[in-house]
């Protein structure tokens, strides 16, 4: 059975698209045929992060409107042939999305794909609502600061009450917490909420912590999902998250200050 995963947060700029790209790539690399959809119609970003912006011909809205078939619009990833991207339209707005249309596209994708990752736009309006409406699992991306945590809490409330699963009284959406841009050093200084603080407020299953890392920006700029940078801490953290999601038991990393021995000696940052 295909599973629909929504990557959501409420707040903008917390790393939804980075996460969507990374976990979609991670799932595909593990041998699962995966599609990733950009729901941020009007502000497309996913294709840039996935490095396929030059190959966009048709988009999600075209498929919904019947102007292109799904196969015409899906872009096969250059790094992994099990990964496909359905880009957002830059020229339309979120009003172009309809519940019926989104449902139709997802149903069609479900026939062929194991995982469908929906990259939600920020906010709680139509685009975000439609991105999560049909989801089976939700990855709630949160930064360790109060406003992001509050917005995630709001989004969790919406997931629990306004989704298809909630409306049909089905088993609720499975919710997972992803804490991004985490810096143990700043937590120590009291500048950031700790994992425990966030867990205390959201009481949610922690899927993983992604450390604040230069590699994320580098990956975005070069158009390769950060999970492919296996040497980087963020890449490894996403690798752990995908493995845990698929049922592997991996201990959490990047939570404590692991300033290494060499760094202590040489004082590099």
């Amino acid at each position: 059975m295909a599973r629909i995963i929504v990557v959501t947060s409420g707040k903008g700029g917390v790393g939804k698209t980075t996460t969507s790209a990374a976990i979609a790539m991670g799932l595909a690399k593990k041998g699962h045929k995966t599609a990733v959809i950009d729901f941020d119609v009007g502000l497309r970003n996913l294709d840039l992060i996935m490095g396929c912006e030059r190959r966009v011909v048709y988009d999600f809205v075209n498929v919904i409107n019947g102007e292109a078939t799904l196969n015409q619009a899906l872009i096969r990833d250059k790094n992994c042939n099990l990964l496909y991207i359905l880009p957002a339209s830059q020229t339309r707005d979120k009003e172009a999305l309809s519940q019926e249309g989104v449902g139709r596209v997802l149903d069609e994708l479900k026939k062929d794909f194991k995982y469908i990752v929906c990259d939600s736009p920020a906010g709680i309006e139509k685009g975000a609502h439609l991105a999560m409406y049909f989801a089976d699992d939700a990855f709630v991306v949160t930064n360790p600061e109060v406003s992001s945590v509050r917005d995630s809490d709001r989004m969790l409330g919406i997931l629990a009450s306004k989704s298809y699963r909630a409306e049909q009284n089905l088993e609720p959406i499975k919710e997972y917490l992803l804490l991004t841009r985490y810096s143990p050093e700043r937590v120590k200084l009291g500048e950031m909420l700790s994992v425990e603080d966030v867990q205390d407020i959201l009481s949610l299953h922690l899927l993983g912590v992604i450390p604040e890392s230069k590699s994320v920006l580098n990956a975005s700029n070069s158009g390769t999902p950060v999970i492919l940078d296996e040497k980087s801490d963020a890449g490894q953290a996403y690798g752990d998250i995908v493995a845990r999601y698929l049922g592997e038991n991996r201990p959490h990393r990047f939570i404590d200050d692991q300033k290494g021995f060499f760094r202590k000696f040489f004082g590099s940052k």
């Binding site: 509050r150 809490d153 919406i158 629990a160 009450s161 407020i201 009481s203």
Partner: peptide, 24 residues
């Protein structure tokens, strides 16, 4: 189930909540 930020619950009688009630 947890009462998340933005959710409202109204009960005509007594209200018993076993999970947390979030800010907001």
């Amino acid at each position: 189930q947890p009462i998340r930020s933005g959710q409202r619950i109204y009960a005509a009688g007594d209200l018993v909540i076993l999970s947390q009630v979030s800010a907001g």
